[in-house]
Design a binder for these strands. Structure first.
Lengths: 226, 226
DNA sequence: CGGTTTCGTCACGCAACCGTCACATGCCCG
DNA sequence: CGGGCATGTGACGGTTGCGTGACGAAACCG
């Protein structure tokens, strides 16, 4: 599965294209402006970018140039304008391909595959597994936790606790189990777990009062909701 | 200067396109059949191939597949047929791009440049792997490190440390793992790693206080961020 | 042989983290 | 409705982890 970022201001086209891409098996993020697209790509890089040229605010050409300053991601221009001048300008700005709307999604998918084949191998891409719980991402090998794509600072015990829960999604783990697996205490104060769960919640929950991920099951323990 | 092979059966198009490409600065070989094209590419490989789909004898699809068996050269289909089915089939056969006739030579040239930018395929360039982490480049074989394109003087242990981290981008490596892989100490003072990391940081980070690449993950170890 | 670079060790100090406790809050059930 | 128990939370030392500067030994190089 690969992720695609779609930057297109026309609501109808954006939504329908996004849905069509999802159907083709692409995880799609769609935004209406170049600014949002750049922000998105910075926070959560996609594997390919589709960009319209005529956008409110920053236009597509400038968007491509900005992207190219830091990113080697495949870029396809998807524009209604079909004159040679625009095509050349788009490609010269740094795009890899240029298609004219309306375009069949099958064709887009084929062009994405062609680009991926060709794709640069040199740039370093982390090969880390990601455990996803809604807007919460956990990368065990990277020692990293992200909420809404933003890295969250988590301490070592909190991280181990979170990983332990994440390895058993939706399953309740008792305080005793957690003590034993995270702390390697066979006996100890179970309240210790509460404290760390509490601290963790403030970091990975939008509202610590009403946790959506790290839920307590009264009398039994805690679990991490998918 | 780069050489282009044009495979197109229509005499008028072939000749006019070849001339136009010459004007754009491409050294062009134009042939009317797939068989001749393959022979040509075998004897005198061009840097890019333009191929029509409807050809007498072997058709364009088969021609592309044959080419791809031995050659990683950029291929652009130049066809009169503009339906999705053909486009997808052409790209799936191994082409990198597909344009519909009539096409402006300026556009063709821009697409060739875009492909060349992306190019760098295994067979085209000698494999000097370069690991890129934003503005940081590491060439293991060359024993070279560059920051913002500027070479940075790094000692031998620092270099090996850096390579070890770079080979696992985004992954946390513990001090113990680093000691064992870089120093081949199975036991030893883990603080040794800290010291070298610290020294390395002063060289490859713009601000050693707030490292952007060589990040420490408290309680776990270090990692190199893409 | 003298100077320079690199390496490993050590000690110090700051900052972050951890575990404990005490208290507040909320939930269950009679 | 109210007691009792389970859980949340805030504060507070003690501890640990990490960055850093200094130093001597070893290696390297002219």
């Amino acid at each position: 599965m690969s992720a695609v970022l779609l930057i297109e201001d026309d609501d109808r086209i954006r939504l329908s294209l996004a849905m069509a891409l999802e159907d083709e098996g692409y995880q799609t993020h769609a935004v209406p402006t170049a600014e949002e697209g750049l922000e998105m790509q910075r926070r959560q890089p996609a594997d390919a970018v589709l960009v319209d040229l005529m956008l409110p605010g920053m236009d597509g050409f400038e968007c491509i140039r900005q992207l190219r300053r830091t990113d080697d991601v495949p870029i396809i221009v998807v524009s209604a304008r079909d004159d040679t001048h625009d095509i050349v300008a788009g490609l010269e700005a740094g795009a890899d391909d240029y298609v004219v709307k309306p375009v069949a999604v099958k064709e887009l998918a084929a062009r994405l595959r062609a680009l991926r084949r060709r794709g640069r191998s040199a740039s370093a891409t982390p090969a880390v597994t990601v455990l996803t719980f809604g807007d919460l991402e956990i990368r065990p090998e990277a020692g990293e936790v992200r909420l809404h794509g933003e890295p969250v600072a988590v301490t070592r015990t909190e991280f181990r606790l979170l990983c332990e829960l994440a390895e058993h999604p939706g399953q309740v783990l008792s305080r005793q189990q957690l003590l034993s697996r995270v702390w390697e205490y066979e006996i100890g104060d179970e309240r210790l777990v509460d404290v760390h769960v509490g601290r963790l919640r403030h970091k990975i929950e939008d509202s610590a009062g009403k946790p959506r991920h790290l839920v307590t099951v009264r009398g039994l323990g805690y679990k991490l909701q998918p």
